[in-house]
Design a protein around this nucleic acid. Structure first.
Lengths: 230, 230
DNA sequence: ACCTGAACACCGTTCAAGT
DNA sequence: ACCTGAACACCGTTCAAGT
């Protein structure tokens, strides 16, 4: 019987990302990945050094999918577009935020860090000093990753996806309106039409509005920027 | 030899939280927990139904440590204090945000959801409608959990804690200033005196500033707001 | 050069058996 | 009522052996 074309790193990473997209981080095991590639688990170690290496490779790939942003935009728009582009890429591959946050991957290539560099550049352009820039960058990152993680299986006070819709309403009935009046009102009125992407965009706009407010008044550039759209 | 006092759920949860605080989420296994309690792993199942039950119990406990807030404060201060109180409790027990976000725990008691109810109440008080309240609550939650996760082992473009300080500077040298000018400036200027708690407070203030800006202009004041007709 | 089988040290969990 | 030993179906990874 003809041996298949031999494996290589790229094929391993491609299959790993597919598997992770279908089954999540906990579904991505060396043994299952090998099976999908028609090989024994131990063969994978000829092409990647270990599981962390796979997760790093996946993260690098997904970072490279982040659409670049126009550097001539005013700084708030630059922050908005880069961050929304990261959100879009990561929400297609939820394993990445999860692996980042559980320290199972730690990409360090210039490619991967490019979006962070753009964000830092926009913040410096706004006139923030080093401390404030680090804080603002951290805030954007936290909002981004937190939003992604909460929209995929995370805690919102909501029930887990369960099997169907009826899980939700059962849960709502379970929340005691006497002890949690506001939260149960919220649940009752928002079970329809929840859009994580739209919610994130709104959250990001709110944060950017706050950044504009706290930015040094005299913009260091010629550009009078601070538009808030709504 | 005298049998020890028998185990019970409370003892199991206490030991589990201690173990998790020392060793992290991945260090908390049924077998290691049992060993710490001087018992076989299978004994634990007499007192908890499974590992998820343990993680839920831990989350409930930590939520109950969140200091309550003064409901007479203006809504922005109420949001600030509740959220900072959650941050304080969770940063003492990093397993909780991690378990929430990986869907390994899902507390649903009124006790646990109390802080979320307070936040929702403050947002309604600010005059936000149901949609905006949900979005704002999600933003606060995302910023909170994202900040906590990033400050414990997560991705910031920084290296992992490694063994020592020298890991950091080695990493900084590794970032190419030609390709990542702003980000490498940031790393160079902020390796000293990073305080996650202070950074979070700053980030939260920025978000709250944004919320104040986008809140309906006429504050509904003391007016009884939360009535739901159905 | 690439792949494999067996093994090691782990997981969560079930079940029948012990006291 | 509580605890245990053996077992099952998994993990990531190493290593000597095969082609």
């Amino acid at each position: 019987m003809p041996r298949r074309e031999p494996l290589n790193r790229e094929k391993v990473l491609t299959a790993a990302l597919e598997l992770a997209d279908e089954e999540g981080l906990e579904g991505l095991s060396m043994r299952r990945l090998a099976k999908r590639l028609g090989v024994e688990a131990m063969s994978l170690y000829n092409h990647v050094s270990n599981k962390t290496d796979i997760l790093d490779g996946i993260a690098e790939r997904v970072f490279s999918e982040v659409a670049p942003s126009d550097p001539t935009l005013p700084w708030p728009d630059q922050i908005r577009t880069v961050t929304l582009n990261m959100y879009a890429a990561f929400s297609r591959h939820p394993i990445v935020p999860l692996a980042l946050v559980t320290d199972q991957s730690n990409p360090t290539s210039a490619q991967a860090l490019q979006p962070l560099d753009t964000l830092a550049g926009a913040l410096y352009q706004a006139g923030f000093d080093d401390l404030r820039t680090r804080q603002a960058l951290g805030a954007i990152n936290a909002l981004l990753l937190g939003s992604l993680l909460l929209s995929t299986g995370g805690f919102t006070g909501d029930p887990q996806p369960h099997t169907a819709e009826q899980g939700v309403s059962a849960y709502i009935r379970q929340v005691d309106p006497a002890r949690l009046p506001h939260f149960s009102r919220l649940l009752r009125h928002t079970q329809n039409g929840v859009s994580p992407a739209a919610d994130f965009e709104e959250a990001l706009n709110t944060l950017i509005t706050g950044l504009i407010t706290s930015a040094p008044q005299q913009a260091p550039d010629h550009a009078p920027e601070g538009r808030i759209d709504e």
